[in-house]
Amino acid sequence: MLLFGEFEIERALGPYYARHGFTVLNPDQTTDVGFVLTGRPIALGAGPGEQLFFRWK
């Protein structure tokens, strides 16, 4: 199971999600979730002005 979400950069919630076991990406970063789900690359990232956090469970 993949848990993920986004937050606005100015809210600075990265340390909160990191403390709860999530990986927090920089605003322009993506992560490849496709290989695990489909065997093909699929990039997951946040929209403009947002940061992505995720955790595999």
Results as ranks from 00 to 15, higher is better:
F22W: 03
T30M: 05
G34T: 08
G39I: 02
L37N: 07
F7H: 11
V33E: 08
T30I: 00
F35A: 07
T31Q: 11
P41W: 10
E50K: 12
A18L: 07
F4K: 12
T30E: 11
L2C: 08
L37M: 11
P15L: 00
L37S: 06
F7P: 00
F4D: 13
G5P: 07
V24N: 06
G21P: 01
G21V: 03
P41M: 08
Q51E: 12
E50L: 11
F54Y: 15
T30G: 03
L25H: 08
E50D: 08
L25S: 07
R55H: 01
V24G: 05
T30L: 03
F35L: 14
Y17W: 15
A46C: 02
A18R: 10
T31N: 02
E6C: 10
T38Y: 11
H20D: 07
P15S: 08
A43S: 05
A46K: 01
P48C: 09
I9G: 03
D32N: 14
K57T: 04
I42T: 06
F54R: 02
K57N: 04
A43N: 13
F53V: 00
M1S: 15
L13P: 02
K57L: 12
D28P: 01
T31S: 06
N26C: 02
P41D: 15
M1R: 14
L44C: 06
E50A: 02
Y16A: 04
G14P: 00
G34M: 11
V36M: 10
G49Y: 03
G47H: 08
K57D: 07
A12C: 07
H20A: 10
G49E: 04
L13C: 02
E50S: 08
R11A: 13
P48G: 12
L25F: 06
T23W: 02
G34I: 04
N26S: 14
L37P: 00
G14V: 04
L2R: 13
K57V: 11
G34L: 14
R11S: 14
W56I: 00
Y16S: 01
